[in-house]
Design a protein around this nucleic acid. Structure first.
Length: 640
RNA sequence: GCCAGCGUAGCUCAGCCGGUAGAGCAGCUGAUUUGUAAUCAGCGGGUCGGGGGUUCGAAUCCCUUCGCUGGCUCCA
């Protein structure tokens, strides 16, 4: 007598032979119902998962976010399948689904070429059309080992030895077998919409000393449309690349002569930075901050005392002169601490909020440098807050509100907030951590914004809050970090005299809101695709005289606008207006004013807005105050 | 740092199997005086990233060095 197992599927109850594939139950459902996976108790299962225990199943269809991961994981197997077909003897590593697709690592003496990728993709499509079932096998460990030994898959053997239990699950499609927990789609036919994207180096198990593997990246979706949308997104991201726009719009440059990761801000970039900094300073003053300026180097001993020489890896080697060693600063904190310690502090002074646009230097490994986003010399919009325990929550709240206020002015409306709590290894007292974590969380709750708790992800010296901002095409960028520090306060023996007349240790908060000027500028460029809002635009308006007899009038208008602090230029080139307009559009100048005989005669100009075209004649009297208002209000849109 | 790819005029790029460099744009000069995304003509500009080697001859082949780009946490 065979044992029957009770399975509930979407409110209907079935009995099925033990060990039979769950997919048999689907026969009871209408033909057009074609799930790709089951979900049982939150966990995804293969359609052909054997009936092993009483379960409640729900049907998962394409479009489910978890199902997308499965699709991509199956696509990774498909990739490895194709690669092992085409390159016999190749060693396969691991192949998971990742955020935007999947990858698979291979060990092979010669690198893959772009032609190889094409051939692999072609082979993948062939396997898809073969509609090979993807089967789950459960075998004991010894059997699994012999299977991969036979196939000469040393890397897989290593993984099985390390991770496999007494029973091991394998997935097979055609001749290809992989050591894998699953789940997977029922057959290769389900993987229709995919593309291989790139190949790169990666270390076996992420270990730099281990063998270097070749990683093939790809992406996969349930529909062709989603795939195309994603590929278009990649194209769009390329067009927004701040390194290209930075050059085209003459915002900044880097040079071999300087060395990697060192940025020169050109006048057009510098004026934007000036606007950012001015705004930043005003808002900080309003919010009760005071400013600090500190030097770029300090005696090495300061960094020994702070612990940076011991724990901080990204320091440049020290300089030595007059018998002392000096260190280029990787952080601003010790300077602010020295200022704090310049005299005895009273509880009456706290909180102290000390801000500095502090330029720091970090020895980032050459391979990780990237445009403005990862550099070696950069200016943090840093501040340190020294406060008492009971002020903590209020201070954190203020910091978050200030960060949001700044971001909104720059047109970022969508944020992701993360609270990272005490890691396993930490310094400081447990009760301080608990108190601090509670203060951080309370502050977050008060802001009314949603946040995510990353348990155990804090830094060793304190819990922190990170904020990522979402740009115009949905990418997230880490900018803000707010960190409690129990370490430096201790190391420098910070204190204040309390109401009770005895010494107390202040709480110290590090915070950077925009992150760094360089990074934030890079993000801004990509967010706006180089078309900055009026208040930030390096040139806010350009006047285009039609013929040279209109130049005097153009100059007159320019002077009127300049007198109001607006950045206005005149195009004196002896070109046709068409050409001048084209140049101005390419330079992404927000406002263009065409002036010819008509305009001279009635004291007006013909206005054109970048990307929007001709708006017709406007009188100078009307336009000037309106433009000024848009700039002063930091309007993100030009509504005239 | 490691793996891979790339490095030719200010920019974007062409130069096949070695025969000592070319286009477009930009720049300069001149003509044109122009009405909403490129007027025409002429000129100048490169020791082909640096160094070394092979060769009668190297941008092209080899070695080396520098720089840039992509990637190097995400459990089978």
């Amino acid at each position: 007598m065979e044992k029957l197992i009770k399975i509930k599927v979407e409110e209907s109850v079935f009995f099925i032979k033990a060990g039979a594939p769950l997919s048999e139950l689907l026969r009871q459902f209408p033909q057009e119902t074609k799930p790709i996976l089951f979900r049982s108790n939150g966990q995804l299962l293969d359609l052909n998962h054997p009936a092993d225990q009483e379960r409640e199943l729900s049907l998962i269809f394409p479009g489910d976010p978890q199902a997308l991961e499965v699709l991509r994981h199956s696509a990774a197997h498909l990739l490895a399948h194709a690669v092992t077909d085409l390159f016999p003897g190749i060693q396969v590593g691991i192949g998971p689904a990742v955020e935007n697709g999947f990858y698979y690592d291979f060990l092979r003496p010669t690198p893959f070429t772009p032609e190889d990728l094409e051939a692999i993709e072609k082979r993948m499509k062939e396997i898809v059309s073969l509609d090979q079932p993807i089967k789950r096998l459960v075998v004991n460990k010894e059997e699994a080992i012999s299977i991969f030994q036979e196939r000469g898959q040393e890397l897989k053997l290593e993984l099985i030895q390390e991770k496999g239990g007494s029973e091991v699950s394998l997935y097979q499609q055609g001749d290809f077998i992989d050591f894998c927990l699953g789940p997977h789609l029922p057959s290769t036919r389900y993987i229709q919409h995919f593309k291989l994207l790139s190949v790169s180096g990666a270390y076996w198990k992420g270990n730099e000393k281990g063998p270097q593997l070749q990683r093939i990246y790809g992406t996969a979706f349930f529909s062709q449309k989603e795939l195309e949308d994603y590929l278009n997104f990649l194209e769009e991201a390329k067009k927004r690349d701040h390194r290209l726009l930075g050059q085209e719009l003459e915002l900044y440059s880097t040079s071999e002569d300087l060395g990697g990761g060192l940025v020169i801000w050109h006048p057009k970039g510098a004026i934007i930075r000036h606007e950012i900094e001015t705004f930043w300073k005003e808002e900080h003053l309003k919010d009760g901050y005071e400013f600090i300026y500190s030097p770029h180097i300090a005696k090495l001993d300061l960094w020994k005392k702070s612990g940076h020489t011991e724990f901080y890896e990204a320091m440049f080697p020290p300089l030595e002169f007059e018998g002392f060693k000096y260190q280029l600063k990787p952080m601003n904190c010790p300077f602010h601490i020295v200022a704090y310690k310049s005299r005895q502090r009273s509880y009456r002074e706290l909180p102290l909020r000390w801000a500095e646009l502090g330029t720091v230097y970090r020895y980032e490994r050459s391979g990780v440098l990237h445009g403005l986003l990862r550099v070696r010399g950069f200016t943090q919009d840093d501040a340190h807050i020294f406060c008492r325990g009971e002020q903590l929550e209020e201070e954190i709240k203020r910091v978050i509100n200030l960060a949001i206020k700044l971001f909104q002015a720059f047109g970022f409306e969508d944020y992701r907030i993360y609270l990272a709590t005490r890691p396993e290894k930490y310094v400081g007292r447990l009760e301080d951590w608990d108190k601090a974590e509670m203060a951080l969380e309370e502050a977050l709750k008060h802001t009314g914004l949603s946040y995510q708790v990353d348990k155990g992800e804090g830094v060793f010296y304190g819990p922190k809050i990170d904020i990522k901002i979402k740009d115009a095409i949905g990418r997230l960028w880490q900018c803000t970090t707010v960190q409690l520090d129990f370490n430096l306060a201790e190391r420098f023996d910070l204190s204040y005299v309390g109401e009770d007349g005895s010494f107390h240790r202040p709480y110290m908060i590090h915070r950077a809101l925009l992150g760094s000027m360089e990074r934030f500028f890079g993000v801004l460029i990509e967010h706006y695709k180089g078309s900055f809002p009026l208040w930030l635009a390096p040139v806010q308006m350009i006047i285009l005289p039609i013929a040279d007899r209109h130049e005097a009038y153009a100059k007159k208008i320019q002077e009127v606008f300049k007198a109001q602090g607006l950045r206005v230029q005149v195009d004196y080139s002896r070109e046709k207006v068409n050409k001048k307009i084209r140049q101005a559009e390419l330079q992404k100048i927000p406002l263009m004013a065409i002036v010819g005989d008509k305009e001279v005669s009635n004291d007006s100009l013909s206005l054109r807005i970048h990307g929007r075209g001709d708006l017709g004649q406007v009188s100078l009297k009307d336009l000037l105050p309106r433009v000024k208002e848009l700039v002063e209000n930091k309007s993100l849109q030009i509504n005239l």
